[in-house]
Design a protein around this nucleic acid. Structure first.
Lengths: 347, 347
DNA sequence: GGGAGTGTGGTAATCGATTACCAATTTCTG
DNA sequence: CAGAAATTGGTAATCGATTACCACACTCCC
């Protein structure tokens, strides 16, 4: 396999320079030559070799992307959105999964750099362990972090405004009558875990509502189930639980219901992400919708602005999300203000 | 950015040939030179340029993969499994989504070929419209189809054994007491839709059970809900419904329950895929588990065997799946044989 | 009609790593 | 110790597309 531009030039009876110019149109050639070259290219089935072009142009037209795992529907959605943005400008996506392991992440970064990607979009798996590899990569090629980020703020970032998100979630359950609220999230190994917890704490304080100590485990359904059991056993059942992601929320709802607690009548539950299962669960989950399309668009846009040579201050773009009210939270009375508690019974 | 092997050679005071040989170890060099080159490479932070290597070696170490959509958790799971298989042999994945459109699919194939991928793994979105682009690509580079395939059988394929799958599903509900069974799937635009329907029909005939006309729509939750309503309105409620994928099944269960039909007491429901939501739903879904890891492993293995030059007959590898019994199907009595119908009430 | 200006084609360098081939040196053998 | 054999270093070609640079031909104007 391999019709080269030399073959085309020979078949058309012209030089490679003319063939290249006729095909790219970057300099004028006589109509007759253009015609002959085009015919020859078509007949031979010529396809330009992108590898050679990349070597010559010092640009590959590929963007590398590393996410912790494609099993997580949130990352999937981001990947899909980024891929489609890139296609708009004729670029392709080299996708890697770090499997939540900083060592693999560092290796993937190296191979992507060796492949001379034009840029990198990454959601670093660990807020601390990912730092050196990410900073090093950022020094060699435009790099934008999405969703998760590394500490120290050395590289651009696009993500959701966790403060706004948690404020909306907390305000919503408070307006539904909640007075005692619990946060169930993940251990603080990545930025999302941290900023969602602190967002929650700020929001609870601002709303003047009591918060029980947070339950921190993993971003999984299983942890949600376990957290539910802990709440059931713990004695002090809150009026509302705000979760770090939808999977936790789904597990939590299941465990609570199994334990005889009614959702939302006894306890309101709010998730986070709204990708994948949230609307498919029974009952459909009230949750904060990640602005995935906007995040992808911003990340790709930002990538085009980064110049490795002149280090500007790192950009941080936090996009405000929207709360999607479904059926796991108690309805807010029409007035919208605080209301009296009615018909609820805690464990 | 760009430390080349020339820079390393100069710094080490040797020729590029020696530098290359010292670093690759493909021919012996004196220990002293090896030492000097390695030190120079380390000090300069030399990273070989994979693009140049690809041009010279005529092999890129990348595999292109095209799936209809990454939003679908089944494809996600396959992508993840393939990615991790490829990593084992140091290859990377160039991922594209066709968004269920044959025209986009054809374009993605062209760009992947232009990037000189070493092979292609594709799940063609349309059994008819995808044919020319896929066959053309298969002529230029090793190509393996996964899950979906094009008609005519011109290219290798790895997928699930739909006959075995549907036989297991039908036998299971029949042993649970079902006598009237319905299939709810997708319109016959892709191979999965077709072979699952025909697998169902064969299985029903073999089991000697009555099948109502199949309901065919799309592989979505929404269609599942709609199909559920059709069944509720239709008068003749079956004892069991076998679905073309899990999303349909989840929607169906929800609609039936909303309509007052108990699952599994009144109607057994079986899904297909067992990726993503199946176990997260309430109640957890009885479903056929796609052998995703095995499919990915086979696809990658097969890719290594295809030689574009000598066209062997196309391979077709159908992997038998396993039924995962959860809570949407009536239990099979211990004996395992047919049982009498009890306690069911149709609409 | 000659010199300046314009348009267009071809030759060869370039991107970076690898390696065929040659040359030089060392080692071995009788 | 001469000559053969083995080892190892260097030079330059190679992969394919692009383009800087040069050369040639033609037009225009005074």
């Amino acid at each position: 396999m391999g019709v080269t531009i030399h073959d085309v030039a020979r078949a058309a009876g012209v030089s490679v320079a003319s063939a290249s110019r006729a095909l790219s149109g970057r300099r004028k050639v006589t109509p007759e030559i253009a015609e002959r070259v085009e015919r020859a290219a078509a007949e031979l089935g010529y396809r330009p070799n992108a590898v050679a072009k990349a070597l010559r142009d010092q640009t590959t037209g590929t963007i590398g992307m590393i996410v912790p795992g494609i099993g997580n529907p949130f990352f999937t959605t981001i990947v899909e959105a980024v891929e489609s943005r890139l296609q708009e400008t004729g670029r392709d996506l080299l996708l890697c999964a770090s499997r939540y392991r900083p060592d693999l992440e560092a290796r993937r970064l190296e191979t992507l750099l060796a492949r001379r990607v034009d840029g990198l979009i990454i959601s670093p798996c660990d807020i601390e362990a990912s730092v050196p590899a990410v900073l090093n990569a950022a020094r060699r090629v435009p790099l934008v972090q999405v969703d998760r980020y590394i500490e120290g703020g050395g590289a651009d970032w696009v993500g959701v405004d966790d403060d706004s998100a948690l404020a909306q979630a907390v305000d919503h359950v408070v307006r539904g009558g909640a007075r005692l609220v619990t946060f169930v999230g993940s251990r603080l190994m990545n930025s999302s875990a941290r900023s969602r917890l602190s967002g929650f704490e700020r929001a609870a304080a601002r709303a003047g509502v009591d918060a029980t100590p947070p339950l921190l485990g993993e971003f999984t359904l299983e942890w949600g189930v376990e957290a539910g059991r802990l709440l059931l056993d713990g004695g002090a059942m809150p009026d509302a639980v705000v979760c770090g992601n939808d999977e936790i929320a789904v597990g939590l709802v299941r465990a609570l219901r199994t334990g005889g607690v009614r959702v939302p009548d006894d306890v309101s539950v709010v998730g986070f992400d709204d990708v994948g299962h949230a609307s498919m669960c029974d009952p459909p989950l009230t949750t904060v919708r990640q602005p995935v399309e906007e995040m992808a668009a911003e990340a790709v846009r930002l990538l085009g602005q980064v110049r490795v040579s002149d280090p500007r201050p790192a950009q941080r773009i936090a996009i405000a999300p929207r709360l999607v009210v479904r059926e796991t939270s108690r309805p807010v009375p029409a007035g919208g203000g605080e209301v009296s508690v009615n018909g609820r019974g805690t464990a």
